[in-house]
């Protein structure tokens, strides 16, 4: 027998509605980046009010999203998530403006400036990267939990990297792999409050960050893309829009029963290659 959330979802699909997340407030960190932008657009399309959190200005993205709707769905919120005070202020603002966060997507990441190999990287640079990629997400999660508990529902997601991965620099991998333990931990502790947690492990997604990494290695972008496409068992890298749909799915009530999951979205590279 289908559960209520699944039935509601099917009913809404049959009615042609796309407002599954109406009245829900989402916060997407790194919202102005490649994957972040796609997630913001997808959540807005599902009816959510989306706060686009980024260290960069995101007004033009918010305007672009809002142009497609009669109501305001995207709100830029410029924040450095590695700064605890800024994070606290951001959540305070969202609480005052729209009653708090329902859906938190910890997506922000920096790859860092070279040198990134362990033999050359300084501790300061290591710390700087990890303070965004790992600590930033932990700060946001700690700040979001009280909002979600008050609402009796919430979704927390992390963009993650595999615990072991080839050629990824230590600070980036440290940050992104830290979410695996955290997702399970929070799932266990927060389920009684109706809060679900997910980690989506991404590899080989065609984003501006991937382009930047390829260019920093002085490799021809077209050849590099072809090589990366071939590595995936699907024959090509995933697009940011495809990944955004995964996050949107986990934001929906239909996925309420899937908490604590770490989902690989890697074209089969991690285990099948």
């Amino acid at each position: 027998m289908l559960n209520k959330d699944l039935k509601d979802y099917i009913d809404l699909v049959n009615k042609g509605s796309s407002d599954f997340l109406k009245k829900k407030v989402s916060l997407v960190t790194g919202g102005a980046g490649g994957i972040g932008t796609a997630i913001c657009k997808e959540l807005a399309n599902l009816g959510s009010i989306v706060y686009i959190c980024d260290i960069k200005e995101a007004k033009s993205l918010a305007n672009e999203i809002n142009a497609g709707y009669s109501d305001v769905r995207a709100i830029p919120i410029k924040t450095d998530i590695s700064n605890k005070s800024e994070v606290k202020n951001m959540f305070e603002q969202i609480l005052n403006e729209n009653g708090g966060v329902d859906i938190l997507i910890n997506n922000a990441a920096v790859y860092g400036e070279p040198p990134l190999n362990f033999l050359e990287i300084s501790y300061e640079n290591f710390k700087k990267i990890i303070s965004v990629d790992l600590s930033g997400a932990i700060y946001c999660t700690i700040a979001a939990i009280p909002h979600m508990i008050k609402k009796g529902w919430g979704k927390i997601m992390f963009t993650a990297a595999p615990l072991s991965s080839s050629g990824i620099p230590a600070p980036y991998l440290a940050g992104k792999s830290g979410f695996i333990g955290l997702t399970k931990f929070f799932s266990e502790k927060l389920k009684k409050y109706g809060i679900g947690t997910f980690a989506v492990v991404l590899r080989h997604i065609y984003t501006p960050m991937i382009k930047k990494v390829i260019e920093s290695r002085n490799i021809d972008i077209k050849n590099a893309k072809k090589d990366l496409d071939k590595k995936s068992l699907t024959g090509r890298m995933a697009t940011t829009e495809e990944i955004a749909k995964m996050f949107a799915y986990f934001a929906l009530p239909i996925s309420n029963h899937m908490s604590g999951q770490t989902i690989l979205a890697d074209g089969g590279i991690s285990y099948l290659r």
């Binding site: 362990f118 990297a161 615990l163 991965s165 600070p171 991998l173 440290a174 940050g175 792999s177 333990g181």
Partner: peptide
């Protein structure tokens, strides 16, 4: 988890 990632790299 973060230590595992760092050490693997």
């Amino acid at each position: 988890s973060a230590i595992t990632g760092t050490m693997t790299s």
